[in-house]
Nucleic acid binder design. Structure first.
Lengths: 256, 256
DNA sequence: CCAAAAGTGTTTAAAATACACCCATGC
DNA sequence: GCATGGGTGTATTTTAAACACTTTTGG
């Protein structure tokens, strides 16, 4: 099936496979070069950036749909994802944004389920930047990591969704351990501190941070230090998987 | 239009008015006789109890749908409602639960949008028990307040939804002021304390509670005490609307 | 005047914050 | 040997928890 044929098919018959009116949008966070990144797609026709998203199959759990979408864009599997909010303004999915697109596939706006109203559920994922191989979807020219502080204009209400996800992430930080997927297997104390500082967008006291993160018990110090730095070598740590998973469910009580 | 005609119509043509596959369920909490109550409906045919729910009109914001449903069951307007979770298991809305119902309206299960799969969004509301006049919907024989500790068997996954709502409410207590709708216009310190104790399901220290709740600034003490009690008369308080609303948005930081 | 329940204050413990000194490494 | 940045400890402040005595009111 040719590219355009497949696309036409999706527009005309996608509703036989997917639930109408509901979509899922994923906010995929990564951490690299001491910066918080988010994975975005650049739309073919508008040129604007958008969140990786998709639809729910007729017999699929919404959580599974989110994971499937994540896998399609990143190749990653087995990632913890969490819904954080439903965006339901009737004017949020405007047909205007897709007029260009419509022409190319030769459809009228009343011919496709894709131009009906959509309510979207936002999901967040925290992933290992280095393990991601971004893959664009059929609507997009490219899929890339963008610095959280350098986000260009976005499609529809995606900017609002991203902002809400960020807020949510900052709140999550107080209840759930964060970092397992964002950091490499082993990491130093300054590295995990920088991650927290980046997410919270504020400086933290080095010594108090260390005391608190240690007191949660989710870290294990390795018998190994970082080499090749022009100062005292920091220890490597890794997450204690058992306690980390326990904390993911039960929560940890600390504030920063 | 006769009752059965209207119902048949809803089953056959409701999808022209409402979005398919998405519903809203409301967990409406009230406080009375020092007990936390929840407003439930008893289904006509199964006899089981269910949450007040409904659908989203084609051009309606989901928040508006929730408020409309609340109003239909309680008569109340202008109530703060909040989405707390989306329930999306594909097996959650089973046709089996509605077989009895099907017969009475003389429909086959593949004839109505109502028997397709539904994803539901949970909303919570905290309302003034005394102002509610419960009204059953067309699927139910009765609409009543039930004590949170005496909930009978419920429809579908409604018990899970209720449990999640309760958890959410307990968490909310740490961030948002609670009580404006649950308590009468003026109330005493022991009364609001009892409310918090009921929601959290644990005893709180009288003196420490008072100090904390006062320190939030959301209360104003009136120049009036409760009369006719065989002991020292407690002061009446009311909420400082300006600060209460501010705290609703900005949050208040305290734990109990 | 007594029982019941509210008002208020103090002492103690724990947690968060601020801060200072020492140590290892590469240049 | 010195600049850089990490490791560790301690004093201080703030917040939470535990607790006791006094006050008011109806019966």
């Amino acid at each position: 099936m040719s590219y355009d044929k497949a696309l036409r098919d999706h527009y005309l018959k996608g509703h036989e496979k997917y639930l109408r009116h509901i979509s899922v949008d994923c906010i995929i966070f990564g951490f690299h070069d001491n910066e918080l990144k988010v994975l975005l797609l650049q739309a073919k026709y508008a040129g604007l950036w958008g969140l990786p998203g998709g639809f729910i199959k007729k017999e699929e759990h919404m959580d599974e749909a989110a994971k499937r979408i994540l896998k399609e864009r990143t190749g990653l599997d087995e990632i913890y994802m969490q819904q954080f909010y439903v965006f339901s303004a009737p004017e949020r999915s405007t047909r205007k944004a897709n007029q260009q697109f419509l022409k190319t596939v030769g459809l009228k706006s009343n011919e496709s389920w894709m131009f009906e109203r959509f309510i979207t559920v936002g999901y967040t994922a925290l992933v290992d930047f280095s393990k991601v191989e971004p893959v664009a979807d059929v609507f997009s020219t490219t899929c890339e990591w963008l610095n959280i502080h350098e986000i260009p204009e976005m499609l529809l209400d995606h900017r609002d969704i991203l902002n809400k996800a960020l807020e949510d992430l900052q709140l999550q930080l107080n209840y759930h351990p964060v970092g397992y997927n964002l950091l490499p297997e082993k990491f130093t104390m300054p590295e995990i501190q920088k991650l927290y500082e980046t997410i919270l967008d504020k400086k933290l006291d080095r010594r108090n941070f260390q005391r608190k993160i240690i007191s949660t018990g989710i870290l294990k110090r390795l018998n190994e230090t970082k080499k090749g730095v022009a100062h005292k070598a920091p220890w490597y740590y890794k997450f204690d998987q058992r306690k980390y998973q326990k904390a993911l469910k039960g929560g940890i009580g600390f504030e920063l």
